[in-house]
Amino acid sequence: MQRRVTFPNRVLPYLLLAPQIAITSVFFFWPAFQAVKQSLYREDPFGLSSAFVGLENFRAVLTDPNYLHSLRVTVVFSLSVAVAALAAALLLAVMTDRVVKGRGVYRTLLIWPYAVAPAVAGMLWLFLFSPAMGTLAFLLRRAGVAWDPLLDGDQAMLLVVVAAAWKQVSYNFIFFLAGLQAIPRSLIEAAAIDGAGPWRRFWSIIFPLLSPVSFYLLVVNTVYAFFDTFGIIHAVTGGGPAKATETLVYKVFNDGYVNLDLGSSSAQSVILMAIVIGLTAVQFRYVEKKVHYA
């Protein structure tokens, strides 16, 4: 934690820390404090006066059917994205680990979607599946599917899940591949000599040894689906149709920035803060300690 040898200056360290502390204070702590404070007040529509209402905003938010709906949407969305992105990445990583010829090429061709912005990823899939011009939408319709994500909530959800998962596969792939390559070959060889086939070896040896990586990725993917996918939803569906894809983050943005309902938006912000703190705590406590076999 602390080095034995340090420099004796008294003022210099504060100067070195000043930029970071200034930015965090002005743009992180002060607004967060304001959010907490505002969540306890109710402001009149013209912003002229505000009254202390205690936990009233929270009660209103947590009993609002729209908010509970949005919470359900978020859970469905996050779980679908995490499961789809993890499963696809694991499959591709296992296959890449298996082949000898062309491994580097496969790796390069699979990692670059990481650089595509979530909003752009959403648009790419929208172009393919837009009822007005998407070639795949056209083919679906010709095959008899009533495809219109602008009207059908489930189809809109499917579209944003696919786009969000598509973008995240490359990230998971890199970590799974690193995890696979860290497994000692001798272990797998020993199992093979004992007569275990590839299927058995995967489920009895490789998969358990990957569990720390998998758990870590599950947390990261959940955080990604909660927060970073705002761009996909904002650009592709705008939370619609009929709020079918309105996640919690989209709702905070919409209620605060668009509809200017500050009390409710602040209460929602504080709830989201609690969720992030919970997820970060899980990430730091469990990832290192509980799921560990090596």
Partner: peptide, 20 residues
């Protein structure tokens, strides 16, 4: 202080940060 900023992404403080 630096560590805690991990728990305060823009998404949880949209309006007050906008005001700042």
């Amino acid at each position: 202080m630096i560590f805690i900023t991990l728990m305060l992404p823009v998404e949880v403080r949209i309006m007050p940060t906008y005001k700042v």
